[in-house]
Structures are given as structure tokens and as C-alpha cells.
Design a protein around this nucleic acid. Structure first.
Lengths: 145, 145
DNA sequence: TAACTATATTGTATTTATTACAAAGTTAGT
DNA sequence: ACTAACTTTGTAATAAATACAATATAGTTA
């Protein structure tokens, strides 16, 4: 799947932050850029490792703080797909599902399957639905099997 | 949803373990019972707290060991629905989806919606699909809103 | 621009879920 | 009952995330 396969400029990222009333610090821009560009659904740790290469004074806590701010501002979404850690996705995205590779742990976008039956939710108040496919990604499938 | 809403006897649980070649220790029976009866998709910690009431010498490590054994034996399934921890479900279950309450954290069963379109998986090797609804369970919905 | 206030970042310490591992205990088969 | 294999237990270690206080930065007012 290939939406948002282009790179957002700093100006665009700053604009997104401004719209939500979030002060556009270097760190926040970098965290948002890391999630928006690349489409790799990174974990907090992956974000930290990537950004701190270019910005050595970065603290892990700042990454977590920034992520919380971005999630609260609705720019970023937490994906609860793996039990050990959280992955982050750009929030304003077309409906799609996810694929979680059981070998490399990476998360990929897939199209969202259409549903026929709207199920009987029996009193449950539903905000959102996640569809998660699990298995081996093309790369890991080649290496293993 | 109300499948498996009956209590499995110790004899049945022991039978399940035997079938998979797992030695039916007190601890393993208790862990399996906790998951099979109650239908609450407990976490390792919830299992530990419940069982250790009746069996004070129980070690947390034993709970984890038992869970791994049961998962390997195919009797129990790990649900990766929340990023902080794992929930456990009895494995041989009819197709169903899950509902994760964002307030109390409990996980409930829901029917599985029928899909129309089988999506283009583009080279991904899919083992399983999880459908996860998120929102407020009936109880939390009353308390909050 | 200086002073003041509000907000962000950083580093350290802590918490929670889980795993590693070795010692002690238990079970099954001879 | 003896031995070998397997289980349980407790402690220590690891990983992800949070709490919090000190420092730094940005924004506002005079």
C-alpha cells in the first residue's frame, strides 16, 4: 500500500503542529517527521535511535513527551498491535489495515477489507476498529521458508 | 457473546493437557482453568493474583512458564491487543473478534464481522487476522458518560 | 533589550511486564 | 528406592514507559 509515500517538508510539519496549537520545537518536528516520512510505524525506541543520530543531546523522555503531545493533538495515533511496545502512525490517514510481521516485528499498511455484516455490538460503545493481519512479510518469508 | 460459557472440570482440563503431551501439574491446570473458565482474557498478572490466593507458594515465573507451555501446546493463544501487556485466550474457539475497553482495559468477545472483499495481500504471508474493536464497555460507558 | 512567566527538554530514578538462570523439588520409569 | 528428566521457585536482569525535579528555551510585557 502506498499512500502518503511522499516526504512532508519542515514547513508542512510546522504547519500541522501550529494548526493543533503545538509549539513546533526541533524535537517535535523531528519526531513527527520520523513518523510521517518513512511510513514505518516506528516504536518510541526506533524514533529515539533515528533522531539522536542527528541530534545527540536528545533525551528518551523528550521522545515520549513529544509522542504524547502529538497523540493528544490528534496528529499521531498509537498502534496497539504488539504486546511489548507501541508503534506510532500518522493519524490523518485513509482507512487501512495493518500487517504485523512475526519475525522482524515491522508493521506494514494493507488495504482495509470491506465488511458485509455490521455486527451486533450489544451495548458496547465502539470508537474504532483495527484489523491486524499477522504472518511473515515478503522479505522475512524469503529468508525463512 | 456467549460461547464456552460453561465451566470445564478438572478432568476435562487434564484431558486437554494430556492430549498435547503436557504434564498436568497443579499449576498448569490452575492456569488453564483460569483462562478457560471465566472468559475474561486475563493477563499473566491477573492469573497470578487469582491463583496465588488459593495457592500461596505460586511463583510468577511458574505462571509465565505455564503460559508458554500452553501456548506452545496450542491450548492457549496470546492476544496482542494492548501495548503494555499480553492477554490470554483459550485457543480452540470459534471465529470471533475482540472488544478492548479503553477505561477498564478488559477484553470481551464479539462476533466476527463477515468480509466481502478478500484484500490484495501483495506478497504478505498471512497466518491470522485479528479484528479489534475499541471503545467503552457497557459498564464503563454508564459510569462515565 | 531586560525581566518575567510559561513551556520544553534533559537526566536520573522508579515502575511494570517479562525473561534468564540456577537451585530445590517433584514425577515417572526402572 | 534410584536415577534421570522435568517443574517449580526465587532472585536477578532486561526492556518499555513514567515520574519528577533541575535546567534551558521561548514568548510576553515593560
Amino acid at each position: 500500500m502506498a499512500f502518503a509515500e511522499y516526504t512532508l517538508t519542515d514547513t508542512e510539519l510546522v504547519g500541522m503542529l501550529h494548526e493543533r496549537g503545538i509549539r513546533p520545537s526541533i524535537q517535535r518536528i523531528a519526531v513527527l517527521a520520523c513518523i510521517a516520512n518513512g511510513r514505518r510505524h516506528p516504536t518510541a525506541d526506533e524514533i529515539y535511535r533515528e533522531i539522536s543520530q542527528h541530534y545527540p543531546s536528545l533525551s528518551r523522555t523528550t521522545v515520549y513527551n513529544s509522542l504524547h503531545t502529538l497523540v493528544e493533538g490528534g496528529l499521531v495515533r498509537e498502534l496497539e498491535i504488539r504486546s511489548g511496545t507501541c508503534n506510532y502512525d500518522l493519524a490523518p490517514q485513509p482507512r487501512h489495515s495493518h500487517f504485523s510481521c512475526r519475525r522482524c516485528g515491522q508493521i506494514f499498511d494493507l488495504p482495509m477489507p470491506e465488511t458485509v455484516s455490521s455486527i451486533d455490538t450489544g451495548g458496547f460503545d465502539i470508537d474504532s476498529v483495527d484489523v491486524i493481519f499477522r504472518g511473515l512479510c515478503p522479505k522475512c518469508h524469503k529468508q525463512t521458508n
